[in-house]
């Protein structure tokens, strides 16, 4: 219940606008991740074939290193994508819970506005009931 009460007490909390913004970020993140995942192998030239020497062997090693950095970036972006999706789901769940709590409180004569039931109220927000949507 602390998750629901604390924002109500402090006056801070996420709104559906924030969730929408997070979704937009998720879309941009997915786009970047898809591009990085699909493109990074083509950014690394194949090991040299026409010239061979100690230096070219070292160069091939650096190309491997370059590939590892790029693939690492792709993996990190995949993680970020999954984590942001989870964060959005948690926020939505919390908004739902808080809206129910607010509705229950309203039904028993307590004040506190309609909250998320209005579609965009802040989670536990004090002044955004029936807000901007």
């Amino acid at each position: 219940m602390d998750d629901l009460l604390l924002p109500a007490l402090t006056g801070r909390g996420a709104t559906l606008d924030d969730v929408d913004a997070a979704r937009r970020h998720l879309a941009a993140l997915r786009s970047l991740h898809a591009e990085v995942r699909a493109t990074w192998p083509s950014l690394v030239p194949p090991p040299p074939g026409a010239w061979r020497s100690m230096a070219s062997e070292g160069y091939a090693g650096w190309l491997d290193d370059l590939g590892m950095r790029l693939s690492g970036a792709a993996v990190a972006l995949a993680d970020a994508e999954a984590e942001l999706e989870a964060a959005i789901r948690r926020t939505e769940w919390r908004l739902e819970q808080q809206a129910r709590a607010a509705a229950a409180a309203g039904g028993s004569g307590a004040t506190g506005g309609s909250g998320a039931a209005g579609g965009s109220g802040a989670v536990g927000g004090s002044g955004s009931a029936g807000g901007s949507g």
């Binding site: 604390l6 801070r12 970020h25 790029l70 792709a74 990190a76 984590e83 964060a87 919390r94 536990g124």
Partner: peptide, 26 residues
């Protein structure tokens, strides 16, 4: 900059951190 609630901020530090790691790799 997203003004998510505190508990989510704590958890959403994960995507921010992963994006930061991706930036370092890039």
């Amino acid at each position: 900059l997203l003004d998510l609630d505190e508990s989510v901020v704590a958890r959403s530090a994960a995507p921010i951190s992963s994006i930061g790691l991706a930036g370092v790799c890039l």
